[in-house]
Design a protein around this nucleic acid. Structure first.
Lengths: 150, 150
DNA sequence: CGCTTGCCTGGAGTGCACTCGAAGGCCATA
DNA sequence: TATGGCCTTCGAGTGCACTCCAGGCAAGCG
């Protein structure tokens, strides 16, 4: 993400890449305060600053007074990170991915591998959850039967 | 689970309830040492003892020398608990469920509610993961395209 | 008999992912 | 000019789910 002419998510910005119409982003602007980002993402301001400290955010702009100004691109990234989070991916791995992004397009292959391995994990998790669903349904069925025919 | 004539999982033991053919349980026996349970469940001995301390296990038998002797029923329970764990249910909630089980059949309704709420959570998680899968696929597609057409 | 192995206990420690507090800066409005 | 509100950094604290340790007992083997 060294080259970044900051625009909306409509285009395909090489490094953040393919982002279709997302959550309703209020105005047609491209600069948000940290509290606005808190409102959009549900993350706390503390967490946003912490993400930046540990290298999980690819450098956030600052206002002339030094306050953070997030772009739509940053919001896309946070959106993606949030999705990865709930697959159970550890933060350290996401930092690794963020580093690859910072290193530019020479890391495309490695990024793709990382994403594909994550994809496999997600599929496995979904399968596990389906399995669990089966167990739950059986137990719920049992309790329902007990309720109607004691 | 105050009444429990300890048998295999073939029957439907009212409180642990509906357990179909599970993971291959080696012999036709009904008494396992902690290290055997470690081998079956993948949990550590530490974790098994800890589960017991916090009330997540419904009282494990002891040998005459005071060592734990797990039954098939205990293994079924651990199996179930492990499934609940990977839905993201906090341990405290599972302890709550274990308490309901200990209190006997007067808590059937409450148990069923708890399971149904868990079921909803699992469905929501599956949906989230499918969503994430979509994002991953789009990104992977992008990197694939870059690889073939630089 | 001594050694090894396996298990026991209570309590302390670890790693992760936040989460919060303290102390202070900038700025708009009253 | 002062008051409130939002911002900053650094560093410490929290909650969860384990994870490990020290010290000790009991059984089996050479």
């Amino acid at each position: 993400m060294q080259s970044a002419p900051a625009d909306t998510a409509r285009t395909t910005p090489a490094d953040i890449c393919a982002a279709p119409p997302r959550h309703p982003r209020p105005d047609g602007q491209d600069s948000y305060t940290i509290s606005e980002v808190v409102a959009f993402t549900g993350l706390t301001a503390h967490t946003l600053r912490w993400y930046e400290r540990i290298g999980l955010m690819p450098h956030v702009d600052r206002s002339h007074t030094g306050q953070r100004r997030y772009t739509n691109r940053d919001l896309d990234w946070l959106n993606f990170v949030t999705k990865l989070r709930l697959t159970g991916m550890p933060v350290a791995d996401m930092v690794r991915y963020a580093e690859l992004v910072r290193q530019g397009e020479t890391t495309y292959a490695e990024r793709r591998e990382l994403l594909e391995s994550t994809r496999r994990d997600v599929l496995a998790r979904i399968a596990e959850l389906h399995d669990t669903l089966g167990v739950l349904d059986r137990k719920i069925g049992f309790y329902s039967a007990e309720a109607t025919a004691p």
